[in-house]
């Protein structure tokens, strides 16, 4: 959920928001279905193909993951040590590479590191999938969708407003980064803790600016009558088109295929 919607008019742009939300949900489920990083790579490839087809700046999405790398590496290390061999089906994944402490305490398993890699790839595929969704769907469509699934108006507004302000916050992040770099900020602190600490001068102003923005936003919304009543004028619903039926067919077919692979053939496990 990191890229603002564009006014282009690709097939995915024209799909009904319900079809897109179902597709998004399926990608989330599939990414959690498979533990094996190879399968995660397949999901990433599929989402990246869709992203390229609609001209999403993939480099930007990848760039967003870089600041998260220290955290991701920490996760891979933690999972490497925290998963015991019994967690894994395959013998090769149960293999203990080394022990952190003498006396065979806290062993690092192959499966544990692979699981950590899966976590990283899962974040990546979800970033791309959510970017496809926000890139191709207007706020009005989101609002209508939330109303359709009977989400309370307040929750719907919170969600759509959060989506609307992602690009604004991203601009703030760039400005903060530049301001701190101009006074000699070094993003490459020593060790994992050092790396995380070096981001504090970015995270705190971003957090403060978000609060200031949220305050201004609440004023602007009240100024425009938001919350006077629980109902508001709804625009006419869009109808499901033939392209949506085709898209739904593909989504359902892929879902069943993946369920078959995972539960019948027991593929994608570690």
């Amino acid at each position: 959920m990191l890229v603002a919607s564009s006014s282009e008019n690709t097939l995915i742009h024209r799909l009904d928001v319900r079809s897109k939300m179902l597709g998004f949900l399926v990608i989330i489920i599939l990414s959690f279905l498979f533990q094996n990083p190879i399968y995660q790579l397949a999901i990433i490839s599929a989402t990246a193909f869709l992203a390229l087809a609609i001209n999403i700046p993939l480099r930007k999405i990848t760039g967003l993951i870089i600041p998260l790398l220290p955290i991701v590496i920490s996760i891979i290390l933690i999972t490497g040590f925290s998963y015991s061999p019994q967690h894994f089906d395959h013998l090769s994944n149960r293999k203990i590479l080394f022990y952190l402490f003498p006396g065979k305490h806290l062993g690092a398993t192959v499966g544990g590191f692979l699981m950590g890699t899966t976590f990283l790839l899962r974040i990546w595929s979800l970033l791309i999938a959510s970017s496809i969704l926000t890139f191709t769907t207007s706020l009005e469509d989101f609002t209508q969708f939330f109303q359709w699934i009977k989400v309370p108006a307040e929750v719907s507004m919170i969600l759509t407003t959060a989506l609307r302000f992602i690009p604004t916050l991203d601009k703030k992040r760039s400005l903060i980064l530049e301001a701190q770099m101009a006074r000699g900020m070094n993003l490459h602190g020593k060790g994992i803790i050092g790396s995380i600490r070096s981001y504090i001068p970015i995270m705190i102003p971003l957090f403060i600016n978000s609060i200031i923005m949220a305050n201004s936003l609440s004023m602007a919304m009240l100024n425009r009558g938001y919350g006077l009543s629980r109902v508001w004028t709804v625009k006419l619903d869009k109808a499901i088109a033939a392209r949506d039926f085709w898209a739904l067919t593909v989504i359902i077919f892929l879902s069943f295929l993946c369920l078959f692979l995972r539960f019948k053939l027991r593929l994608g496990l570690l």
Binding site: S5, S138, L139, E140, T161, R164, T168, M213, S216, L217, M219, A220, M221, N223, R224, G225, Y226, G227, L228, S229, V231, W232, T233, K235, L236
Partner: peptide, 30 residues
């Protein structure tokens, strides 16, 4: 009331969507 920072007063994706935000809140007919 119009405030200083235009960035935090715009709530819609398109110009029309944003301008319609207020009247929709007070249930003005479409």
């Amino acid at each position: 009331l119009v405030l200083q920072d235009p960035e935090t007063q715009i709530l819609g994706r398109t110009v029309e969507e944003d301008t319609a935000f207020g009247p929709r809140n007070i249930s003005v007919p479409l």
